[in-house]
């Protein structure tokens, strides 16, 4: 039975693999598809489909969550525009979550540091590091852009890599003595993880402002500083 008093919709269009999830704290329904660069044409049709197959109406949503990036600039704007439209049109709260936090979240069950990354174009990735300190998971504040094959450079501890990789590069990185590379399905950007994280933020009362929330835009070759954030542990 869906708890419609706590029904949250999560939207992720940071990468070409788009995703939607419905979550009420216990129950979850997810939809993933390859949107290519055409998220505008598909997101709302897919949302309508997801609601229909669950016999739900869009007006039953009580909160909406969206990934903030880093990721494709236009992709992020699609998700943000739809999320803001839902928040404004339905009068429901909006929660933004950094895309890298979503990727890191499932790996917080282990105590190894996590390096989460998304594609940044031209064979590059942008990543952030997560450490377990004093009983809390914390994201380092600097986001770095490197070539994907340099992802294992500078690791001083055994670290979990989280993000999508080509099979050949995955094999090469997995052979690095300090790298733990989980199977591809565990490294995928799943909207369910976003929904779970956002639900906890929403329930704790930490929602974002419709007027000011915007994506995180990271340019290749630059180091972007984002506020360091505590991440709840996935259990």
């Amino acid at each position: 039975m869906v708890d419609v008093d706590r029904l949250l919709l999560a939207i992720d269009t940071s990468t070409e693999q788009a995703g939607l999830a419905l979550f009420d704290g216990a129950w979850l329904s997810e939809l993933n598809w390859n949107a290519g660069r055409n998220q505008t044409a598909s997101v709302l049709s897919q949302l309508d489909h997801l609601l229909r197959i669950n016999r739900l109406d869009v007006r039953q949503l009580k909160a909406v969550a969206v990934t903030l990036g880093p990721g494709s600039f236009n992709g992020l704007r699609v998700g943000m525009s739809v999320a803001k439209g839902l928040s404004y049109g339905l009068g429901i709260p909006l929660v933004g979550i950094m895309t890298l936090d979503v990727l890191a979240y499932p790996h917080t069950v282990r105590r190894h540091p996590i390096r989460a990354f998304v594609p940044a174009g031209r064979g590059r990735v942008v990543y952030a590091d997560y450490y377990h300190r004093g009983g809390q998971w914390v994201r380092e504040s600097v986001l770095k852009t490197v070539r994907a094959d340099q992802l294992s450079e500078g690791l001083t501890e055994t670290t979990v890599l989280a993000g999508a990789l080509h099979a050949e590069l995955a094999e090469r990185l997995a052979s690095h003595p300090r790298v733990i590379l989980p199977p591809p399905s565990w490294r995928a950007l799943r909207p369910g993880w976003l929904a779970d994280l956002a639900f906890q933020r929403w329930q704790s009362g930490a929602v974002d402002r419709l007027e000011t929330l915007e994506p995180v835009y990271v340019h290749a070759g630059t180091a972007e500083v984002a506020a360091s954030v505590e991440l709840p542990e996935s259990r």
């Binding site: 505008t40 709302l44 869009v58 704007r77 739809v82 439209g85 839902l86 049109g89």
Partner: peptide
Amino acid sequence: LAGSLLVGINVAKTLAYVW
């Protein structure tokens, strides 16, 4: 401009959908 147009289009579609 594609990146500009998509903001208005996605917001408009969403509002038309929920209303």
